[in-house]
Design a protein around this nucleic acid. Structure first.
Lengths: 128, 128
DNA sequence: TTAAATTTACGAAACTTTTCGTACATAAAT
DNA sequence: ATTTATGTACGAAAAGTTTCGTAAATTTAA
């Protein structure tokens, strides 16, 4: 099974984000981070991480009595996957529409816009 | 309450997609459309639409003995909402990264790429 | 006019996801 | 050494989502 679907739930994604941002972390660290946004019980987060371990979304190593959890899925892969879902689900598969929507409604600097243009030229390759 | 969160579930989104594409439709039409992709019982779709009516995601009008369902949320609003969530959630708020990812991994025609470039120029406005 | 087909309503089962209580182990503090 | 704090394990309740069976109404076909 070379390529399996990454399908984190809403909560799982929140946790993955914490780990992606902070790097490998203990349950306490992750729970503290989550609680900056919303109230979540410690054992809830723990259970979540145990479930995610079972699903292969995270791995863990022992550090004394603690467990340190690391992301087992690349942020990139998740981005890809979720982008795809959004693209198919709401944009009818048109990357153009999605891109225009994204650029239109969010501030992007001139420099970045230029980079995107260059990237597009690169994509077009010998097809001008 | 002018602006409420649009949070359709997976299945609800599939149904909204059908209605957005085909316009107001009967249960039968929606169910037939869904069945082009995956098997779904008629009453399942019906129940779904009833639930969605309750949530305010769709509205319905009588047409003889049938009900015709229309989307109560704009495709645009849903796009905006979900795009934003993805952008903030997994792309760290960088539209550039999202756009590049979207263009890089999905076939987009040269014509469309050109349109996007033009759109970017338009965005840059007097800032070349 | 009867029978068959199609439609809505709706409860409830089947599944999935999230939350938490409790038990027990281990480390830190007194 | 005993108590207190902090950790993991895990079952199960709570909440949310999806599926479908059955009943009742209404239209279409025989």
């Amino acid at each position: 099974m070379p390529k399996q679907k990454i399908k984190p739930t809403e909560s799982e994604l929140e946790i993955l984000q914490v780990i992606w941002n902070k790097g490998p972390s203990s349950v306490r660290e992750i729970n503290d981070e989550l609680n900056k946004t919303r109230e979540t019980g410690y054992t809830t987060t723990l259970k979540m991480l145990q479930i995610m371990t079972g699903k292969g979304l995270v791995t863990r190593t022992k550090d004394g009595r603690n467990h340190i959890y690391s992301a087992a899925v690349e942020r990139n892969a998740a981005q890809q996957q979720l982008l795809d879902k959004l693209l198919m689900g709401v944009f009818g598969g048109s990357a153009k529409r999605l891109v225009m929507e994204a650029l239109g409604s969010h501030k992007t600097s001139s420099e970045e816009l230029e980079e995107i243009k260059n990237y597009i030229d690169q994509l077009k390759g010998g097809n001008p």
